[in-house]
Amino acid sequence: MSDFSTIFNRRNTFSAKWDMLKQVYAIEDDTDVLPMWVADMDFGLAPVIQEAIHKRLEHPVFGYSIAPEAVKDALSTWVSTKHQLEIQNEWILLRHGVIPGMAEAVDAFSQKGDKILVHTPIYPPFKGIPNNLEREVVTCRLIENGNSFEIDWTAFKECLKQDIKIFILCNPHNPGGKVWGREDLTKMAALCKQHDVLILSDEIHSDLVFKPNKHIPLLVAAEETDNIITFFAPTKTFNLAGIQGAATIVPNEKLRKVLENGATRRGEMGLNVFSLTAMQAAYEHGEQWLEGLLEVVEGNMKYVVEHLSAIEGVKVSMPEGTYLMWIDYRGTGLNEKDMMDLLLTKGRLALEPGTKYGEGGDGFLRMNVACPRATVEDGVARFKLALS
Rank of each mutant, 00 (worst) to 15 (best):
V98L: 04
D114M: 02
L160Y: 04
M279V: 07
P47W: 01
F43Q: 09
L85E: 04
A39N: 14
S5L: 14
A263W: 03
P121S: 06
M269R: 09
L191P: 02
E203S: 08
N171A: 15
G313Y: 00
M279S: 03
V369A: 06
E291G: 14
E183V: 10
P124E: 04
M301C: 12
G63V: 05
A67L: 15
K346N: 04
F62N: 07
T355G: 15
L259R: 01
D207M: 07
M279H: 08
P60N: 01
D73F: 10
R95I: 13
D362C: 15
L45S: 11
L160E: 06
L185V: 14
I216R: 04
N335I: 10
P251K: 00
M36D: 10
F231R: 04
K315T: 12
E203V: 03
E104Y: 00
Y123S: 14
S201R: 05
I129R: 08
T230Y: 01
Q111N: 13
C159E: 14
G292N: 03
W180V: 15
K384T: 11
K337R: 05
D114W: 01
F62R: 14
G270I: 07
L294W: 02
P175S: 05
I49C: 02
S275M: 02
G313T: 06
H83N: 14
Y329S: 12
S388M: 12
C159Y: 12
L349C: 06
V273C: 04
R256F: 09
I216D: 01
G270T: 09
A46T: 10
R182F: 03
E295M: 11
G299R: 09
W91Q: 14
V48N: 07
T77V: 12
K82D: 15
K72I: 08
D338G: 11
E320M: 13
C159H: 08
I27C: 08
P100N: 00
G101S: 03
Q50E: 10
L94H: 05
W91Y: 06
V71K: 06
G63H: 06
V24L: 04
L308F: 09
F274Y: 05
L200V: 06
L271H: 02
P217K: 00
I151N: 02
A74R: 00
W18L: 13
P35Q: 03
Y303P: 07
V296N: 09
G245T: 00
M1I: 15
T13C: 10
Q280H: 00
D73M: 11
A70K: 11
L349S: 02
L294P: 06
L342W: 13
E144M: 02
M188N: 04
I143F: 04
V137Q: 09
V296S: 13
M36N: 08
T120Q: 03
V48M: 10
D32H: 11
P130M: 03
